[in-house]
Design a protein around this nucleic acid. Sequence first.
RNA 1: UGGGUCGUCGCCAAGCGGUAAGGCACGGGGUUUUGAUCUCCGCAUACCAAGGUUCGAAUCCUUGCGACCCAGCCA
Length: 554
Amino acid sequence: MSNNDTLLPANFIRQIVAADLKSNKHNGRVATRFPPEPNGYLHIGHAKSICLNFGIAMENNGICNLRFDDTNPEKESIEYMESIERDVQWLGFKWSGLHHASDYFEQLYDYAVQLIQQGLAYVDSSTPEQIRANRGTLTEPGIASPDRERPIAENLELFQRMRAGDFADGQYVLRAKIDMASPNINMRDPTIYRIRRVHHHRTGDVWCIYPMYDYTHCLSDALEGITHSLCTLEFEDHRPLYDWVLEQLQTPCHPQQIEFARLQLEYTIVSKRKLNQLVTEKHVSGWDDPRMPTLAGLRRAGVTPKAIRDFCERIGLTKQNSWIEMGVLEYCIREDLNENALRAMAVLDPLRVVIENYPDDQTEQLEISNHPQRPELGKRTVPFAKTILIERDDFAENPPAKYKRLVLGGEVRLRGSYVIRCNAIIKDDDGIITELRCSYDPDTLGKNPEGRKVKGVIHWVSETDSYPAEVRLYSRLFAVPQPDNEANFLTALNPDSLEIIHNCRIEASLADAQAEQRYQFERTGYFCLDTVDSIDGKRVFNRTVTLRENWEKD
RNA sequence: UGGGUCGUCGCCAAGCGGUAAGGCACGGGGUUUUGAUCUCCGCAUACCAAGGUUCGAAUCCUUGCGACCCAGCCA
């Protein structure tokens, strides 16, 4: 038994694979695949499936393919395909083979011909409406199409002519001949080929007939030698059809389909249709808007691949429909960022502080640790001067109970610097505080003052040796836990999901912040440079997640 | 009221007949130049319900109840 068996939590799929390995069901092979349809960007729900499929393969020295389920060219595109490849790699996985269902179109066609020859498929001229009407209902059996007993030779000729383009779109379909009375509606002679004159992003105009998912997926799995075909719960009813197709045809193998519950995350949606709607109706800036649950969005927000992988492991894997609280994802993000993000100071809402007893033209280059628990991450230089900026709400004229920041006549520690005392408040004509006059204790750099305790610590930047920046504070995109349950999910959008702050000041070391670097703006949250809008010297930072807040804000 | 699937702590989730793991959340204590981190402690006599089998049941059986999925020429 390897270490993995003791370190990784048990789940029912790991158990099935382990049992199959033990019984030598697939001659010791484990082969999985991640099979997205390229009709949208990958989201956090796909991450669960990616981690599962690639994870199962890696844990067992198996292989995992990336396969595009590109059988419906109407909705698919190259852009989506490219984004999917990019996102899977970013998440940290490397596929064994890169395949497309469209690679198998010729073989799929040949298999269909075999089905016809075996009397197990027929060309139907019924209209979509007739097919639906004759399918029966959940409680009543369907009735046979008049074409169901069409002679094999005729089916063969018609199917060949469907491919040749002799017929109009929709004029005929190829149907599997199974059981119109089956209690499982998927088995009531499902359509397996339709005529559609649509340009396919990979096969161009070579085909005018396209195979359906149920027919394509099982055969693609078999052709790739997949051992465990993992999919979500809604396909449980399709498993009999998956197995039926493979049982009728001579295929390289017969993979086992196993279903698991898809991810449902509170305060978000993972419906590609709805995500697409958010993009096209401009409720967000794009598929990579940092509020989107897409991998591209999470990446731009500063979430790390490691955090997402950790999340996918923590949430477990079962067949139970369940809702994961946002707190779990946030915990995973903070855990990684707390350990690895460089600390820095940024003042979001600056208030000027003049230190009256500090020399006018003096500037000190203070050395401050990049990480309080990890000295190996080094130090940075932060300039300190007579005039500094602090966070406006780190001062209170009328402090609430237990307030431990700066108050008139009180002391506070400037992080990595001196202890200062507030001596006076200066206001403008409207009564707005414009400046604080303070004094510093020169004997408090790197040590605590004697004879008294200074509880509060606040962050700051030098007024002259700091830089302007735009900071974008993101919070949950939706205001309700289950937006999908709303009559119209758009009404559940959180109007305050983005707050843009223009006049922030960041410490000098942040001037050359790198795109991939994650920072903790101390006492504020985790941030990273926005890769899209930080241009021409303009610095834009995205908040990935706040720091945990254990105290009651007033 | 056809078929499929699922019901263990607020949210996830182990458990696979021998007497309820763990994580998140939450509450409380300690450390701390981030109200962060870290750390210690607490948190299901109880497993949808009711019967039954057994020395022993969350685990087996029976009957209920509840939830989710399926009637695309989507995947």
